[in-house]
Amino acid sequence: MSTAPVAVQPIPRGMARQVGRRLGDWFPALAVFVLAIALWEGLVRAFDVQQFLLPAPSAIVDTLVEERSLLWSGGVYTFTEAIGGFAIGCVLSILTALALARWRGLGGAVMPFAIAANAVPIIAFAPITDQWFGPLNKTSKMAIAAILVFFPVLVNTLRGLTSVRPSSIELMRSYAAGELTVLRRVRIPSALPYIFSALKVASVLAMIGAVVGEYFVSSQEALGFQIRNAAQLGEFELAWAAIVVASVLGIALYAAVALLERLTMGWHPSARGDI
């Protein structure tokens, strides 16, 4: 860990250094990525692996380019479901966490069922939400994504809201602050690091939930449908290309949440950049 550059650093130099450091941080991961792809390509060619077992990266990229309009519309379709489910799931779980933090007794009554619900394999919910909201619309897939997202966000938010140091609360009580003030000024800000790490997990889960939801019955446009259909028809490059699109979109959602975290939590020690 380098020593923290304190405020007085002139901006351009500081920024250049920061960009340099970022590149330095990313370099190992980038190198591994390039190496892995090269190895993959090389092995597929050297051993002449059947394309239904593992298509070469170059073949997948070709398909990505050829089928871009199909994949793009599928990606947008599924991404909308994922974002919808993410938003619904996160809002509901954060509201639930706020209620459970306020009325602790409620937690004892509710948490066992939340844990039980979380133990049900998510795929089992898919036929049910199709039944409830209709299989061909986005709502049923959003529901799957929302359910998948709900539990981790609930648990982390609740932990964040309740693991405030007792002296932090005592201080606010010494100012005769009411529950709402304590919530707004202390509990929520100190829960933010927990909430954001939950949201990052949830962002990836939401995309998984949407794709899983689409596996049974869904619009033909959807990415999940495309993956399944292509695999059944033996078009494995297309299936792989759709998987790549799904992952890239999942990562994009993750990155958006991470960016939001940086913007809202500039105060946090971890935002110094040297951790």
Partner: peptide, 19 residues
Amino acid sequence: RLDRDYGIVFQDAVLYDWR
């Protein structure tokens, strides 16, 4: 307490990191 007649200082400073 309701009239804010006292200020309190704890062993740890209890400063809020976000401020």
